[in-house]
């Protein structure tokens, strides 16, 4: 029996086997590779998009200032111009407006779920809303197209295809996202906060407003920012209802376009390497940069949350 060996013979590590069949080491190699791949993928996306996106400026000789500030978009004219402000404005308008609409609604619903009817909220609302987070965006677009656009056309005016339709569709889309994330943020608050406030005789509303909301602010902001990330990146649902005209909208009822919709529509029928194609990559690069910004914002808020 090996128990006759001394401890120094039983328990001291033998020199490392160089065999290929060392599961401990092979496992480590596999998981490190996977983790490393995420970095490679991110770098690849960044490098490839930057490389193509910047071509607009150094190969197609588009003036960056004009690109970002001009609304003059006429790539197929004799003297083509590439002012992309319309699309940048469209994306920002849709994103900000939907955030303004959704933030109070989503946070309000999250408060209902966590503070007012926690058991019902957990059993019924939470699963329902999580299901809605997963509904494909083309479905939201399709409903927008078949219900919302005709409704706006008949009841409000215009052709129905409009900035307003885009904002409403995106709002409905990101509402479940913001609601679940807000509910998570509120659920993370220690229960002591609630009980100590109630023990001081505060009503539920006072507890929510003076104690819970201030404590949850970083988490709630994160929820809204992640909603905005989804809004600014959404392509097909908006494309289906916004009208896709290359004009700055004069009102909410005018059609317009966003960065994602112009990419969706034009990527297929522009020639690779042409100036008109290059600007689409530039718009993609801008979207990527915005993603980075939003991730940084979320991380910043996350760091604050720990304090």
């Amino acid at each position: 029996m090996e128990t006759n060996l001394r401890a120094s013979e039983r328990l001291v590590r033998k020199s490392r086997k160089l065999s290929l069949k060392n599961p401990e080491r092979n496992g480590k190699i596999v998981v490190y590779t996977a983790a490393f791949l995420t970095v490679v993928a991110t770098l690849a996306v960044t490098v490839f998009l930057a490389q193509r996106g910047l071509q607009s400026f150094y190969m197609s000789d588009i003036n960056p200032l004009e690109f970002f500030t001009s609304t003059n978009w006429n790539p197929s004219g004799d003297n083509p111009t590439y002012g992309a402000l319309i699309f940048i404005f469209g994306s920002l308008a849709v994103t900000l407006a939907s955030a303004v609409i959704v933030a109070p609604l989503g946070i309000g619903a999250a408060i209902f779920m966590t503070e007012i009817a926690p058991s019902w909220g957990k059993k019924v609302l939470q699963p329902v809303i999580e299901i809605l987070v997963g509904i494909p965006s083309v479905i939201y677009g399709y409903i927008g197209l078949t219900v919302l656009v005709p409704f706006i056309r008949e009841q409000v005016g215009g052709s129905g295809y409009s900035l307003m339709a885009g904002i409403v569709v995106v709002s409905v889309m990101i509402l479940p996202t913001v609601t679940t994330l807000s509910a998570d943020a509120l659920n993370r608050l220690p229960n002591g906060l609630r009980s100590s406030s109630y023990a001081l005789g505060a009503t539920r509303w006072q507890t929510i407003r003076r104690v819970l909301l201030p404590a949850a602010i970083p988490g709630l902001l994160t929820a809204v920012i992640l909603g905005m990330a989804r809004a600014i990146g959404e392509a097909l649902a908006i494309q289906m209802v916004i009208g896709n005209t290359e004009l700055l909208p004069g009102s909410l009822l005018d059609p317009t376009a966003t960065m994602t919709t112009i990419i969706t529509l034009n990527m297929g029928h522009t020639t690779f390497g042409s100036a008109e194609n290059n600007v689409l990559w530039t718009l993609g690069l801008i979207l990527l940069a915005i993603s980075y910004l939003l991730v940084m914002a979320v991380r910043f808020l996350g760091a604050r949350r720990k304090i």
């Binding site: 996306v45 990146g233 959404e234 994602t260 993609g284 979207l287």
Partner: peptide, 8 residues
């Protein structure tokens, strides 16, 4: 990667 727009 998680927050990258899917069109991108």
């Amino acid at each position: 990667l998680a927050s990258l727009p899917s069109i991108v």
